[in-house]
Design a binder for these strands. Structure first.
Length: 269
DNA sequence: AACGAAACCTGCGCGC
DNA sequence: TGCGCGCAGGTTTCGT
């Protein structure tokens, strides 16, 4: 479920629901999600209070008393807040709070990751120090420079979190559509104007998607914060065979950089 | 430097 | 009903 708008939606809900909670116990049923040694992880987090939740690109950060827990949901990571109930099949990590509630990390494919860093350094070390600016902070001339020195499909570049962070397969397709640029165009031959269109479109798409609580296209299971409505406003993504909302040409599905890619062959040049 | 494929996992829908 | 394949909102790694 997670691109920037979905992660931001989760962040806002967690910020309301679990700030001020003290972690008194952690259960882990699948170790590889946690980057650190499990005993160290549990010992470090125990008795810390959640101060606030931040987000950088697609990463969530639980800011605690002394440390920061940096979480990536990858494809299917979700959070649930529950009372004292037995663990369900795909819950892999349970943070238990003083008030009897617990935060459950649920992930069918087990791709998610958690890194523990100190408060002093977490922004300056892996993984957060590798991220490019997110769309709202991106400066078109800077992005232009980065793209100009590369020769890859523009879709691949927009998916690269080191260049610009937060966009995934849905929002890249929508950004390219709004920019009238086809996904296979090579980065080194994009003009300044086109890159400006890309950055502005990405900002617009993300802002609107956040307003609507993100998109829910595949996993329609009720989860924390994810009953988004932006899927109703998608122009191309998932719309194969349907008419382009601008020109009526049928939307095509192709493959770019190994990813399913939706495009209007008339609007995007 | 750039590309594709594979890796990490599970579940679903499809054709046979 | 069962099996095999391809697909899925992500990222890293490895070979060419």
């Amino acid at each position: 479920m997670p691109e920037l708008p979905e992660v931001e939606t989760v962040r806002r809900i967690l910020n309301k629901e679990i700030v001020g909670r003290k972690i008194i116990h952690i259960d882990c049923y699948y170790n590889p999600i946690i980057h650190e040694d499990l005993a160290f992880f549990k010992r470090t987090l125990k008795n810390q209070v959640i101060q606030r939740i931040e987000r950088y690109g697609k990463y969530l950060v639980f800011v605690l008393n002394d440390d920061a827990l940096i979480i990536h949901l990858r494809m299917e990571g979700k959070f649930y807040i529950k009372d004292d109930e037995p663990k369900s099949k795909h819950e892999h990590i349970i943070f238990r709070f003083e008030n009897g509630q617990s935060l459950r990390y649920h992930d069918v494919r087990k791709f998610g990751t958690m890194h523990l860093k100190t408060l002093k350094t977490y922004r300056d070390v892996y993984p957060l120090n590798t991220l490019g600016p997110e769309p709202k902070d991106a400066v078109p001339t800077v992005i232009y420079q980065r793209l100009h020195h590369k020769k890859i499909a523009v879709k691949t570049a927009l998916l690269d979190q080191h260049i610009i962070s937060g966009l995934g397969n849905i929002y890249v397709d929508e950004t390219l559509f709004l920019s009238h640029i086809k996904p296979t165009r090579l980065t080194h031959q994009l003009t300044q104007k086109e890159v400006e269109r890309l950055v502005n479109s990405a900002k617009k798409v993300c802002a609107r998607a956040i307003e609507l609580g993100g998109s829910t296209i595949r996993s329609y299971t009720a989860s924390l914060g994810v009953h988004g409505r932006f899927q109703n406003e998608l122009n191309v993504h998932t719309r194969v065979g349907q008419p382009c909302p601008v020109c009526g040409t049928l939307i095509r599905k192709t493959k770019v950089g190994g990813r399913g890619t939706y495009v209007c062959p008339t609007c995007q040049k």
